[in-house]
Amino acid sequence: MSESNASATRITPGNALRPEDIAAADLRPSADVAEYALRLGDDSLILSQRLGWWISRAPELEEDVALGNIALDLIGHARSFLSYAGHGLDKTEDDLAYFRREPEFRCAHLFVQPNGDFARTIARQLVVSHYQFELYSRLMHSTDATLAAIAAKAVKEVDYHRDHSSQWVLRLALGTDESRRRMIAGLKLTWPYVEELFVDDQLIDTLGEAAVRPSTLRAPFDSLISALFAEADLDIPAVPGAVGGGRAGKHSEHLGYLLAEMQVLAREHPGATW
């Protein structure tokens, strides 16, 4: 950007890594790296679709925009990861988003959980943003240069998501009796899906330094959440963990409905552009 014509309303696109750059680059991820990128991309894609529902429905217009911005950040991350995975699978990001069937998705169960009320959405955001922050701040040192570059871009955005969710947890938990009741209820519904995020499996073993071992994120995650909960006078919900399996394509009843709405237009009009 030229300094001479800067103004208060100057609009610039910036020069950060874009999904289009990844799609256009000549990249050859291994099948394992592509599978790993699918996991990360699907997490963000599915949550983004969930969050989009809030547009026009949040408590205030400003919060519509805040949640919309977060959803758009997540779509950006998903597009980068899926474009990269697509190089290894001979598919485009749209093929992967719109033309895969339910068992082919690799998202963990947390990301597809229903929005519920605002507090439940914030509870889900709290877990996701803290998990993704810990993940990306390590993935940016991956031996895979593309994964590292996507993570380096994403970590700054996720850091803001973390702040957004933490601020709301504090306000809801320390607000009125009603807001506190809803925050506690939202956390209770969310917590069964936390455990799955931190499970290692064979793919992670195979990838070595290219990936981040999910189990290593648990301690820093717990310590950040504990500090926030102490401030908000909240307890970690004592609830059993839900059945996992999302990374292997085993999903709950929620994903099919979400995909139907997300994919219907692309499937009805394949190849349409606008």
Binding site: W53, W54, P114
Partner: peptide, 23 residues
């Protein structure tokens, strides 16, 4: 008509509409 949003598990709305102070 959305299937991707609220699944109805949200807390029930308060009986009387709250008189909310605008931000």
């Amino acid at each position: 008509g959305s299937t991707t949003g609220d699944d109805g598990s949200a807390a029930p709305a308060p009986a009387a509409p709250e008189k909310r102070q605008p931000w």
